[in-house]
Write a protein that binds this DNA or RNA. Structure first.
Lengths: 121, 121
DNA sequence: TAGTTGATCAAGCGATTGGTTGAATAATGG
DNA sequence: CCATTATTCAACCAATCGCTTGATCAACTA
């Protein structure tokens, strides 16, 4: 998978998580697979709408589907979720490491000027 | 913060991350604060557009802003990023725990029927 | 004070989103 | 075969998104 494709997959994955209905669906799926009808039950929207939500989740790689007669059970793909936390953590950790360096610098300095120059790093 | 407000903040945060330009801005900010003009430089879009992107990130709680003459430096808020990884990890871990239980069950069983009934849990 | 720089506001535009209703497809079971 | 069940397709709609251009606001500086 090239960088552009990975980027587009991140786009879709985060976009998928931006909707409360889809997050709720994922929460349900974390407890085991479910059909479209089952997933639609808690919501005041049509099964068609839920079917679309599932397609969004599937194209984001967050869920997969199997077959059971006329049913199409939906399964959570935890590996995709892990990819997302990895992406977030990457920048979070860089940022926090930077802060730790700044803190160390401030602790060993007297005035505030040192802090201002360190801020530009 | 009540549950609905937290939900809306999650909406906005994930939505904010769904755009490659905004993710790129966050990546830049993980290395230190920057002004709107500086953040706009790598992109082929107007500073107005970047300004809007920053407003999206700010309303999602992912960045904060300070003042320096006519400049408005943008700072990463790593705490908000941590909230997101926590949300994702919650469901990911529930799901993986469930799988571990299923694996254990399968390891101690003979046929596939036990798996089918465990699947419903 | 006038000009310049940095950023935002405002209005508009094409594309996309989340939802609907209605019809079609697929697989089961009497 | 026929009716039922589970799901998807198709067309449409209001709202929102990302971006643009043009104007405005705020603060520094010659």
């Amino acid at each position: 998978m090239d960088a552009a494709a990975a980027d587009e997959r991140l786009d879709r994955a985060f976009m998928a998580l931006a909707d409360p209905v889809r997050r709720s669906i994922l929460a349900r799926l974390s407890r085991g697979p479910a059909t479209v009808t089952e997933l639609a039950e808690p919501f005041d929207i049509t099964t068609q709408a839920v079917s679309k939500h599932i397609q969004v989740l599937e194209s984001a790689g967050l869920v997969t589907r199997s077959r059971d007669a006329q049913r199409r059970p939906v399964h959570l793909d935890a590996a995709a979720l892990e990819t997302l936390t990895e992406w977030i953590d990457r920048y979070r950790l860089i940022h926090e490491q930077r802060f730790r360096r700044l803190d160390a610098l401030l602790a060993s300095a007297d005035g505030g000027d040192a802090a201002a120059s360190a801020e530009q790093d």
